[in-house]
Amino acid sequence: MNELCGTAVLSRHPRAAAEARVVLKAVAPGDHSGSDTAELLLSEVVGNAVRYATGEEIQVAVGFDEGTGVITGAVFDAEPGLGGGVRSCHVTAAEDAGLETGRGLDLLDMLAEAWGVATVGSQGKWVWFQVPAAA
């Protein structure tokens, strides 16, 4: 398995999503058919960490497996819980129409091949996802 990796420690700041995308672009090929999806998901997960987590920094890790074509993105923040995010499957259509936020987990469900949360005791959690190349 030949994997390319990139990592960064970023300030918990609104610019963090843009900085995380720079890491992704340095690792994943620009012509990868899942790059745009991976950028969207990475931005969403970083945005959630910036908005809801505690601590001054977040960590970003991106990997690209040249053999399988899978991009893996992961974001660590110092908040052990996933928080009170709203999932569209838990709200009525009328409630959903009025929501301005809360679609991040839905995006992960719809667009990632796989995703999950790995807690690190009381220190925080990694939220990760995988995006394959389109068939």
Rank of each mutant, 00 (worst) to 15 (best):
A20H: 05
A16F: 02
L40I: 04
V23Y: 11
A135M: 10
A61C: 11
A133R: 13
A114Q: 06
L42T: 05
G83I: 01
L40N: 04
G6F: 05
A17Q: 01
A16V: 01
T7M: 06
P29Y: 00
R12W: 03
E3S: 15
E56R: 14
T68E: 12
L40F: 02
A74C: 04
A74H: 02
V60A: 02
R87Y: 12
L24H: 10
D77Q: 04
V117T: 11
H32D: 00
P132E: 05
A49K: 02
A18Q: 13
V117Q: 01
V75Q: 03
S33A: 14
S11H: 13
V45T: 05
E100F: 06
N2D: 14
V9P: 08
E113A: 15
A8Y: 08
R103W: 12
A8G: 08
R21I: 13
N2L: 13
A17W: 00
K25A: 15
G6I: 09
A118K: 02
G124A: 11
H13P: 03
A97C: 09
A94K: 07
G63N: 01
D96I: 03
A49T: 00
G81W: 02
G81Q: 00
L108H: 01
G47A: 04
R15D: 14
A53D: 00
A93R: 14
V9S: 14
R15W: 03
E56H: 09
M1W: 06
V127I: 14
V70L: 15
R21G: 11
E57D: 12
V91S: 09
G30D: 10
W128V: 01
L42I: 09
S43I: 03
V46A: 00
H32L: 10
W115G: 06
V127G: 00
A17C: 09
H32V: 03
G69E: 05
R21P: 00
V62K: 02
V91M: 10
S33Q: 09
S35E: 13
V86M: 08
V120P: 06
E79C: 04
T7E: 14
G30M: 11
V9Y: 03
G73I: 08
A114P: 03
K125C: 02
D109W: 09
G69W: 07
D31K: 11
E39N: 12
D77F: 01
G67V: 12
M110C: 14
V27Q: 02
Q59N: 05
E79F: 07
R15L: 14
G83N: 02
R21C: 14
G85C: 05
P132L: 11
S11V: 12
L107S: 15
S43G: 15
E95W: 10
S43H: 09
L42M: 10
A118L: 08
V75N: 00
G73L: 11
R103D: 08
Q123R: 06
V131R: 04
A18G: 15
I58S: 04
A61V: 07
A112V: 05
T7R: 12
A26V: 03
A94D: 11
V91Y: 08
T92Q: 02
P80D: 10
F64L: 10
R51N: 07
A97Y: 11
G98E: 00
